[in-house]
């Protein structure tokens, strides 16, 4: 798959005697949406940690636009445009929604790791930042919460904000780690509506434990079981794969 934006070739991650990810080949084309599913402990989160650079695999390669990034640091990958959200929300709960978004955008826009040059400028009011943040607020339907301290938001809104923070930095790949975990069905639907807006405009990798909602959103599914990819392809096809039915569905049946 030479057309892949990001791909892995036989990556493995071993924790002591336990092989969390076992020789995984994976690829995603630009502007596609892929769902990685599988039961708990299948190695999904470990696998995306390898993509984002949180973990370095013992063997195999990670290629990004054809370039080997296997051992490249997290910060560099972020600069390359690989951004992620976390299973447990990672946001700044002592500042406002607006400030959270501005901070995320500012990093991308100025491409500085330390905001010292902005010391005496009220950067929140700069035109460029304001416009972009307003746009994000409207895409993610957070306008009303703009000046709320993030710690006071509902978990659904916080998840939404985390995705918005990744989106505003205009990543090439957006990796969402269990975006639906721990929130109500109603809130899941809200997030789904927004994610559908991004469909085919962004490369999206979604890791999910439940897949009922996921099939509405992604074109391709990738099923993991005990560290291996046991099937991948279009949703319907993959879910009917005998291997998948045997090893995955039996848990839910």
């Amino acid at each position: 798959m030479s057309t892949s934006l990001i791909e892995t070739q036989g990556v493995s991650k071993i924790f002591g005697a336990f092989t969390a990810v076992d020789k995984v080949d994976f690829g995603i084309a630009e502007n596609d949406a892929v769902g990685i599913i599988g039961p708990n402990g299948a190695g999904k989160t470990t696998f995306i940690n390898i993509l984002t650079g949180n973990l370095i695999p013992e063997e195999g390669k990670v290629l990004y636009r054809g370039e080997d990034i296997t051992t490249i640091k997290i910060e560099k990958r972020i600069a390359m445009g690989i951004l992620r959200t976390f299973q447990l929300v990672h946001i700044f709960d002592n500042i406002t929604v607006y400030e959270n978004l501005a901070l995320s955008f500012y990093r991308k826009d100025e491409n500085r790791t330390v905001p010292f040059n902005m010391y005496l400028v009220n950067f929140l009011k700069r035109k460029k930042i304001r416009e972009k943040v307003e746009e994000a607020l409207s895409v993610f339907e957070l306008e009303k919460k703009k000046d709320d301290i993030v710690g006071n938001l509902s978990l659904g809104n916080q998840k939404m904000l985390e995705i918005a923070m990744a989106w505003i930095a205009d990543p090439d790949i957006l990796i969402l780690d269990e975006p639906f975990a721990g929130i109500s069905d109603h809130e899941i639907d809200d997030i789904l509506i927004i994610l559908k807006k991004l469909h085919h405009k962004k490369t999206i990798i979604i890791v999910e434990h439940k897949l009922s909602k996921l099939t509405e959103l992604v074109d391709t599914l990738c099923v993991m079981h005990e560290g291996k990819v046991i099937a991948s392809g279009p949703c319907e096809e993959t879910l009917n794969d005998p291997e998948v039915r045997k090893s995955y569905w039996k848990i839910e049946e």
């Binding site: 400030e99 901070l103 400028v121």
Partner: peptide, 11 residues
């Protein structure tokens, strides 16, 4: 307090 520095420190 209102600069990028202040907000990034709080964050």
């Amino acid at each position: 307090d209102k600069s990028a520095l202040g907000i990034s420190m709080k964050a």
